[in-house]
Design a binder for these strands. Structure first.
Lengths: 232, 232
DNA sequence: GCCGTGGCAAACGTCTGATGAATCGTCACA
DNA sequence: TGTGACGATTCATCAGACGTTTGCCACGGC
């Protein structure tokens, strides 16, 4: 077996077997090299691999640790790869977001929380009064994130955040031909979602969220011939 | 900025800017080192990072290439990290699977494909006639995968596959106290899903799939005090 | 007694150079 | 024309050295 793969398997095994739980510290690199039978270069490449996946974490001057192994945190790491996916693939991902966010929005509507509705209303007030692309994107993210968080499943929130972040790199809200129409439709969609949440109607909330995101898919599809890639 | 991070940012930039599309070949390592201003060690660690995320791919003796950047392929890479998530987190993930798979199952029911129903029936015949844990797990995966594939969104299929694979490491179907009852309930759930698909009833299909996976969540929750970790 | 400072050791981060192993294209030969 | 051997290219791995950061502990001032 290749050296780096051997190191990778060894590290994963140490976690999977329960020898090292979340937050635990690995032995120093030289010791691990000896234990796994590989050079330090190979070991470090393996560590980087698992680091990129959010499974382990190296702290300069301190040591190498198992991460919290929290699903939401691990899913967030996906943004590093999702941001590089071409538009064609983003459309597939948006269906995932549509389904998950409809579910989370329904759950948020089911839980009766007046404070949430109030906060969402404040966000929409700001959102409707701005025309700057960056601010629109930020407030839109805040609105949807607050709803998903209220939905109660951090994993769902993390997934929808990652997908929304990817879509945001395509500039729907740049001032252009259809800017006014798109902005108006988007604002109306947000109000419908908030209305369903306020009136505690999960089914209506799911429908409104689904329709709102489907609308986004439609706009992105129109951009297909000429995508605007992400700039990190 | 740290050397490895600089290399990582440089590589991502080359892809994000469109300079290198899916399948494109990177310059040789020494050339990249010179271009990015880092040593080969640092560059290779950065390459491993992106490799773990499924974004790029090194072929010994040939070169380093941008991957296909296919969402399903990238999501599959998640299994490397998801398999290390503790049971507590798996339950959060299963909610994602439940919602997505209900959606995909409804879509599969909506598309009228007699061949699919026939194939699913054959799988269930085998599944119902075996009591071996490994075979149960394999046939169960095949059944759900076939449905999700028929649902039409490869990204959804990849995500549910990853999550199902994680759950499979907990041995629900080991011969034990409740084995017979669990197996019977599981078999019945599969038949209900197939029935809804055969009768082309998307709503019933979604409900059946959702209930079936909720049942799995219930069984896993019962294992919580004493999880059985994965063995790669 | 408390707190800030300085030094020391441990541990990760980076670089360099050399060697091994796999791939691919080329070219001579049948 | 097919094919096999060869060599150039490229990634894979190793070994060693040095830099940088962190964390701890003793020391001394307040």
């Amino acid at each position: 077996m290749a050296a780096t793969d051997k190191a990778l398997a060894g590290l994963r095994q140490m976690i999977a077997s329960g020898e090292l739980g979340p937050g635990a510290k690995f032995p120093p690199e030289p010791e691990l090299c000896d234990h796994l039978g590989v050079s330090r270069s190979s070991l470090r490449e393996a560590v980087r691999s698992l680091g990129a996946l959010g499974v382990i974490e190296s702290r300069h001057g301190s040591g190498t640790y198992v991460s919290a192994l929290d699903p939401a945190a691990i899913i967030s790491r996906f943004s590093l790869s999702v941001e590089l996916i071409p538009l064609e693939g983003v459309l597939e991902l948006l269906e995932v977001r549509r389904v998950l966010e409809a579910h989370a929005t329904a759950a948020a509507a089911a839980r009766q929380d007046p404070e949430l509705a109030e906060r969402l209303g404040a966000i929409l007030d700001q959102l409707e009064s701005t025309t700057e692309a960056a601010e629109i994107q930020h407030l839109d993210a805040e609105f949807h994130n607050a709803i998903c968080t209220a939905g109660g499943n951090p994993t769902v929130t993390a997934l929808t955040d990652v997908i929304r972040g990817r879509g945001g790199h395509y500039r729907i809200f740049e001032p252009g031909a259809d800017f006014d129409a798109i902005k108006r439709t988007s604002d109306r969609g947000h109000r419908e979602i908030l209305g369903a949440i306020t009136s505690r109607d999960p089914a209506a909330a799911a429908t409104a969220a689904s329709a709102h995101i489907a609308q986004t898919e439609h706009w992105l599809r129109a951009l297909r011939p000429n995508p605007q890639p992400a700039l990190p």
